[in-house]
Design a protein around this nucleic acid. Structure first.
Lengths: 159, 159
DNA sequence: ATATAAATTGCAAGTGTCTTCAAATGGAGG
DNA sequence: CCTCCATTTGAAGACACTTGCAATTTATAT
């Protein structure tokens, strides 16, 4: 009997190892849903799980190559952030004050991107759209609203 | 009598120094219009201009802070690219094969971005939209079409 | 269960990109 | 042309990874 995590690893051809299961677990439990490699490493050490930092980096790279996670780089932040690739495709809106990340989809933007790529003679593989601004919490109270949100939901713009 | 480059430096309050003028010159003459710091440094050394690498980085940062240049990070490429901030706002389409960068604007995408940010309660400061794909040259002949283009033009999608 | 081969891990050392430091230099106003 | 403080420089450091390799763990065949 395999756990869901073991199943998803099996599908990629990656062996079911302790570090890999732990890292999937950390990403699942993550509140922010966007974690850096070092953050994941720290989170594991706090839980008294001995996983090397090099392994965290290696595993995240493998996960990305196998479509288990998505990797992002936001603005000037020189480090990469990872999220589980469970949900539908979405773009990101980042608060430049508190670092909080919101997810959204806009079908019209998606459509126009295809159009632009086609017009330029490109075969489109991928895209990244990042909006940077100040979230409502920071505008109003100077307090981040991140802590209040238990789950991140993808904001869908009405057509 | 001041040169245009001296004028733009004066407006920022930055002193008119040799390295700063040289770096502006390199960016102006750049064919690709998107250069990394090290590339700029190499370009200067080839021209027998002795400018330290640290200076190139420092000057580019100052230029960015003063709105003279724009800084971009494309995809997995861990280094930053700089372009002169002369033209109108535009987004970027990057060929994942040859690294060539095309510029474009789509008013509809711009509009939808504002809408999304507003809906999420954000005050929008900035955004970055990068499309990644394979350019026509690489698709057809496996040869990059970069060399043929003398100047980069901003592709404007018809409304 | 046990042996075996191959994948994986952890540590330490190495990279690439960029930043900082302390000392030397050089524009710009007087 | 002199003085002052911004600016430059090469070297060392910081940061975010990445790699080499011996030791360990996992999947598979017995």
């Amino acid at each position: 009997m395999k756990s869901p995590k073991e199943t998803s690893l099996a599908k990629t051809g990656l062996r079911t190892t302790h570090p890999r299961l732990l890292i999937l677990e950390v990403l699942e439990k993550s509140q922010t849903r966007h974690m850096g490699a070092e953050e994941i490493y720290d989170s594991l050490r706090e839980a008294n799980e001995e996983v090397g930092l090099a392994t965290v980096y290696r595993v995240l790279t493998q996960f990305e190559q196998n479509g288990l996670v998505l990797k992002h780089r936001f603005g000037e932040d020189s480090k990469a952030y990872y999220e589980l690739n469970n949900e539908q495709h979405h773009d990101h809106m980042v608060c430049v004050e508190c670092g909080d990340v919101y997810e959204f989809v806009d079908e019209e933007i998606e459509r126009r991107q295809d159009l632009v790529a086609g017009s330029l003679g490109f075969v489109l593989h991928d895209h990244s759209l990042h909006l940077y601004g100040v979230c409502s919490g920071m505008q109003e109270t100077g307090e981040c609203s991140k802590k209040k949100r238990k789950t991140e939901t993808i904001y869908q713009v009405e057509k």
